[in-house]
């Protein structure tokens, strides 16, 4: 009987402890918090950041049969558009893509200069999980990466450390970075042909 009383007392004590935990958690929730999803940078601000005080113009890259095949091999699915719009100026290009992570599209801006990534920013993240891809600790890994010079499927020439629980978002951002490098290269080739 003594043991039963002691057990009940212990249980009461634990319930009180649990209530305290709930109160602490409520306080934590009341602290300023960061959102996983949201608009973090507008396309206009992204363009301004990309070209600062440099002149830039909006151009269109039409997808040829070969370029579409390369695009789709990078994405792992079909590409809906017939062309891609981009800003260009002073030898650098800036691209904005939407690619689905798990269920919803992530809007990613990529600036390419001298065949390397000069900036990668998450403009908008819509899913409720995996939004850590927007932080500099992740995006800064892409800086200065280019494409591996092989004849196979285009891929990044450096390693990107992932984020656990955000595997699909990480994959989506890597695909977009690869695509921007490929398209930048195509714009250079187009210009040289025109010349």
């Amino acid at each position: 009987m003594a043991s039963l009383v002691s057990d009940q007392a212990l249980a009461t004590q634990k319930r009180a402890g649990m209530k305290s935990l709930v109160c602490v958690l409520c306080l934590i929730f009341a602290l300023p918090a960061w959102s996983q999803k949201g608009v973090f940078l507008s396309a206009e601000d992204f363009q301004r950041q990309a070209f600062a005080d440099q002149e830039s113009s909006l151009q269109v890259l039409w997808l040829t049969r070969e370029l579409r095949a390369q695009t789709e091999s990078i994405l792992g699915h079909s590409f809906g558009g017939l062309r891609v719009r981009y800003w260009t100026g002073g030898g650098r290009t800036a691209w904005v893509f939407e690619e689905i992570g798990k269920e919803l599209p992530i809007t990613v801006g990529v600036v390419v200069d001298n065949n390397g990534i000069a900036q990668l920013s998450i403009l908008e993240y819509r899913e409720s999980r995996g939004g850590e891809v927007r932080y500099p600790f992740f995006t800064e890994q892409f800086l200065r990466l280019g494409l591996v010079k092989t004849s196979g499927k285009p891929k990044l020439d450096g390693q990107i450390d992932g984020i656990t629980g955000a595997t699909l978002s990480v994959r989506a951002v890597k695909k977009v970075a690869t695509l921007a490098l490929l398209f930048h290269d195509k714009t250079l080739r187009t210009v040289s042909l025109e010349k």
Binding site: G17, L21, I163, T164
Partner: peptide, 22 residues
């Protein structure tokens, strides 16, 4: 039952997690 978890993934490649359940 009540479950509370805190998880830290603020460094590329790292996850630290702790869960308490009553």
């Amino acid at each position: 039952a009540y479950t509370a978890r805190l998880k830290y993934t603020g460094i590329a490649g790292l996850e630290l997690g702790a869960t308490v359940q009553y």
